[in-house]
């Protein structure tokens, strides 16, 4: 795979949320606002970059039968480092996300990338994969957080859009709203994917017709 294929695959085609439906706990837990989603995505990105990089570096050294505990130890170390750094330099955001930061360890998306990608690919490919996957994850978090914040509070990134008279739809702030909004987003993604596929098929047919005609 080329680097751009790796990126497309991680960001869209095999998107952690839209395609694999992994990492639901942080997704549903923190996305009450777009900003929370963004920072959760950044924290996940830092962890995934670190873990993919190190796992790829040591992939030939770690014996196969102890690789999972080794990977988890590496991931847990990075998560703790990110948590401490956030507590030190982004204290207010840490207070909001604090509960969900340690849970990044058990975000199966991260161990999944270590096992499925970083342990079998070069360091540079693994870094691209980490960037792509976490960018896709962050995109999904911001999208869901934005939808919930917009419908639930009439705000986006803390800015009021509809004025004071907007009646807050509180359900979207509550957990059921997360599931409902996610369902509609997934439906939208499937619609886009179908359109993309139709266009690709049509293009392929056109090419075949031209070739047959010549």
């Amino acid at each position: 795979m080329t680097k751009s294929e790796v990126f497309y695959d991680g960001f869209w085609h095999n998107n952690t949320i839209f395609a694999q439906l992994l990492g639901m706990c942080p997704l549903l837990g923190v996305t009450t606002s777009a900003e929370n989603g963004f920072w959760m995505g950044v924290a996940t990105m830092l962890v995934l970059l670190g873990s993919n990089l190190v796992v790829s570096l040591v992939r030939d050294v770690i014996p196969k039968n102890v690789r999972i505990p080794a990977y988890i130890t590496i991931i847990a170390a990075f998560v703790t480092v990110v948590g401490m750094a956030m507590n030190a330099w982004m204290h207010e955001m840490y207070l909001v996300l604090g509960l969900f930061i340690p849970l990044i360890v058990v975000n199966c998306a991260i161990l999944g990338r270590a096992e499925a990608f970083a342990s079998k690919n070069s360091v540079s490919d693994s870094v691209v994969d980490a960037l792509a996957v976490s960018a896709g994850f962050t995109f999904a978090l911001i999208l869901l957080g934005g939808v919930r914040e917009l419908l639930g509070q009439g705000e986006l990134f803390g800015f009021s859009l509809f004025g004071e008279s907007y009646p807050d739809v509180l359900m979207f702030i509550l957990p059921p709203g997360a599931f409902i909004a996610l369902g509609f987003i997934l439906a939208g993604v499937n619609l886009i994917n179908r359109k993309l596929k139709q266009r690709a098929d049509a293009a392929a047919q056109a090419v075949a017709a031209v070739e047959a005609g010549s």
């Binding site: 009450t32 606002s33 207070l95 509960l99 639930g152 807050d168 509180l170 702030i173 509550l174």
Partner: peptide, 8 residues
């Protein structure tokens, strides 16, 4: 410090 529901 609190963990109450945002918006409620």
């Amino acid at each position: 410090d609190h963990r109450e529901t945002p918006g409620l």
